[in-house]
Each structure stands twice: as structure tokens, then as C-alpha cells.
């Protein structure tokens, strides 16, 4: 008699109140120290979505935050668990999303995500981008609020992503982004200025 929906449910946080508070604290810390990797202690996993991304959704999504899930990460079990644990509405339109979940490949295209409006820049979409790792990409230099001078970050992302982000970043408008990999979390708020380091500048001089 167990319904199809029921069979897909998985455990959320072990201690919902404390775990959600820890995730919220980690999210604040990630956004206030862009480029710094933070590890989450308690991370459930729903279907196709790895730990930190799940934990962020459990901590941040509620009945007032429409969630958009990318086609590559979408899974009935993920939807069932989000509906059960967060009670959040799902939207098919990028523009309506308060939270959007996508992977690194899909992050090449940030069309239609809401960058906020002049009167309410806070209404922008927050992106959760799930990556295989938080390093191993091309080296970049990040500067801005929360970074004392500069921070070297090498996220495995295509150049198109950085162009798309720059196109949607006209302060105070812009997209705030969380990068997640397994249990790790990194923040990239709209205020961070990123610059690609020329490989030649750092490669050892050829003889």
C-alpha cells in the first residue's frame, strides 16, 4: 500500500533545528569570506544531489522560496524530498526562482535568472552550483569585500560562466552564488571582482 511518493522519501537532518542553524551559519560565513571553502558536518543526500547542495536547500528553502532545478539534476525523488522536508514551491521558470540548483556544465548559461531590480536588489536568484570539486580549474584572483587583499581560487568552470556572470553583474544588481562539492561549500557574492590569471604569468619561465 506504500505510495510511490512515500517510497522515495529519505531522512533529512538528524537534528533539524541545530543542523539547519549550522548550515545557515556556514552559508553566511561562505558569503562573507568569498573563495574560502567551508566543510559542512551533517549533509543528507537526496537522489542525484550531493551533500552540501542538499544541506543548503534544507537550510534555506521554505514555503516562500520558489526553487528551480536544472534538467540535469532533476529527479522525482529530489522533488519528493524537497516537497516533504522544505515544503518549497517548485518553479519551471528561471525568473521566478529564489533558489536555483544547477551543475557546472549548465552554469555556462545564466539566462533569465533574476538579478533583482533597482528598488529590490535582494529579490535576485541565489544560485547553488554543484561541482565535482572546488579546485582543479583555471586559477583566478578574487578581490572585494571579505577578502583582505586577493584570494586565489581555481574552480572547474568554463570561461562562458564568468562572462555570463559579468553580464548580469551591475551592482547593486547581480547573482549571488554558492559552489558546492560533496560536503564543501564556497560563496561568490555579487560584490566579488574576479580576474583570470594569465597562465603565462605564473608558469615557470621557459629556458
Amino acid at each position: 500500500m506504500a505510495g510511490k511518493y512515500d517510497a522515495m522519501l529519505e531522512a533529512g537532518f538528524g537534528d533539524p533545528v541545530t543542523d539547519a542553524a549550522h548550515v545557515f551559519r556556514a552559508a553566511l560565513k561562505a558569503m562573507s569570506e568569498p573563495g574560502q571553502s567551508h566543510e559542512l558536518a551533517s549533509t543528507p543526500e537526496f537522489a542525484t544531489l550531493p551533500g552540501a547542495a542538499c544541506a543548503l536547500l534544507l537550510g534555506l528553502a521554505d514555503a516562500n522560496t520558489p526553487v528551480w532545478i536544472s534538467p540535469r539534476l532533476d529527479h522525482p525523488a529530489l522533488r519528493a524530498n524537497l516537497a516533504f522536508h522544505c515544503n518549497c514551491p517548485m518553479t519551471a521558470h528561471r525568473r521566478e526562482a529564489a533558489l536555483a540548483v544547477l551543475d557546472g556544465e549548465e552554469a555556462r548559461d545564466l539566462r533569465e535568472f533574476n538579478a533583482g531590480e533597482a528598488r529590490r536588489p535582494d529579490l535576485s536568484t541565489t544560485l547553488i552550483i554543484s561541482l565535482p570539486a572546488l579546485e582543479s580549474g583555471a586559477p583566478m584572483s578574487w578581490r572585494g569585500p571579505g577578502i583582505s587583499r586577493e584570494r586565489r581560487v581555481s574552480l572547474p568552470l568554463a570561461a562562458e560562466f564568468w562572462e555570463e556572470r559579468a553580464r548580469r553583474n551591475a551592482f547593486p544588481l547581480g547573482l549571488d552564488i554558492f559552489f558546492t562539492a560533496n560536503r564543501h561549500l564556497m560563496g561568490l557574492p555579487r560584490t566579488t571582482r574576479t580576474e583570470r590569471l594569465e597562465p603565462a604569468r605564473h608558469a615557470p619561465l621557459a629556458a
Binding site: 522519501l9 529519505e10 531522512a11 533529512g12 538528524g14 533539524p16 522536508h85
Partner: peptide, 8 residues
Amino acid sequence: YQLIRPPE
């Protein structure tokens, strides 16, 4: 058994 939603 697994607690999907612990008693609250």
C-alpha cells in the same frame, strides 16, 4: 528503521 522526520 530510519527516521525520515524525527519526532518534533
